[in-house]
Nucleic acid binder design. Structure first.
Lengths: 205, 205
DNA sequence: CGTATGCTCAAACGATCGTTTGAATCCTTC
DNA sequence: GAAGGATTCAAACGATCGTTTGAGCATACG
């Protein structure tokens, strides 16, 4: 087997991320996409099999790393004797925030928010099968740290917090940083906003 | 001028609500839509002018009433001498919740959540021009009740709460009510969940 | 060198899209 | 009941969609 052109696949994935964020999965055509990527129209079907498979790979490329970092961060805080709720939330939020400040990572968060709102069955099943265990582990930890909440009460709050975070992160591509604030400071302020909000939403009396 | 067939227009709007919620604006074709409505394909362009105009009318039909009820409810609580934050939030949340329990109102909330996540410029401009004053009035009231928050801090929290509520309400079509709980009770419990969460998210220290 | 193998390319496939057309039909009004 | 505007209808328009094809080119291996 020869070259296994990683270059073309990566160009397609990059252009797909941009156009899916801007026009949606249906709205972005393979002709726009391949033109933006500078590759031939047939390259998508050759390298990915179909448009739907391409969509899955767009998610895989980012979510594999993102959720691995989330679980890694979670593992580092649950081992200790006194785990704080905000540490668990930071383990969920901070990796996504770091992703948002990388190249087109913010655009991917838009794609993710779109998929979240679409309620598309096949896509939801794909995400659930491949990354459902991440949410399950976090949920388990939330339940442990909030024993006063009933199961249904906890699920309500997690659902609301998830909606808030997803929505907020989908807008990260468009916020203009105040002048005089370094990117480091800005990211830390954003993290604090999200974490404190999530703590309040989960643990209010 | 004769009949001005309200019937056909209403059948189209109803079918559009269902299909836009299920497949999205691009995903739902006028052929599926008119077939589901039991009308001729050309009826959409005849009565609405274009598919895009139809989308706007789908929003208008629900949002005119929804936002009028929100402002009405808001007016009834801001007049009093001691206004509580949860009353203002109830004025925002309860009309949407009542809409969600009417016929296809829950599906419309899905459509709304979709539009919210799409970041489509023309649709956002349409919503902002026609209903922006509603959010502005609520924001003004939040600022009055939460004077300790800076402007940017307040906007952060409102954005997060809005994301949470939009996401939660977009799922109302799919929740199965526990047996033994009346719809009245269920709706009241849901309202309490949302309102308390929003209060915590806005006013945490 | 010859020949597989991986990849790119222009071109075309059938299907479906939103929209338009012009005749047929309904319904009101005189 | 004739006239005329409002509405519906089947059919077609050009455009664009995702996908497939087969020839052409590159690179690796015997």
């Amino acid at each position: 087997m020869a070259g296994s052109s990683t270059l073309t696949k990566e160009r397609i994935l990059g252009a797909a991320e941009v156009l899916f964020a801007r026009r949606g999965f249906d709205g972005a055509s393979l002709r726009q996409l391949t033109a933006a990527a500078g590759v031939n129209l047939a390259a998508v079907n050759y390298h990915f099999g179909s448009k739907e498979k391409l969509v899955e790979q767009v998610f895989r490329r980012r979510l594999d790393a993102l959720n691995a970092r989330r679980l890694d961060a979670l593992g580092k805080v649950v081992g200790r004797e006194d785990t704080h709720l905000e540490d668990v939330l930071a383990a969920y939020i901070r990796p996504a925030l770091e992703l948002s400040h990388d190249d087109n990572g913010a655009l991917f968060m838009r794609v993710l928010a779109r998929a979240f709102a679409e309620h598309d069955d096949s896509l939801r099943q794909f995400l659930s099968e491949n990354y459902g265990h991440v949410m399950r582990q976090f949920t388990h930890e939330f339940a442990r740290l909030l024993p006063q909440l009933s199961k249904s009460e906890l699920y309500w709050r997690i659902d609301l917090v998830t909606g808030a975070l997803t929505h907020a992160m989908s807008g990260f591509g468009m916020i203009q940083r105040k002048s005089g604030v370094s990117e480091q400071q800005h990211r830390e302020q954003t993290a604090q906003h999200l974490i404190r909000f999530a703590v309040a939403g989960l643990s209010h009396p």
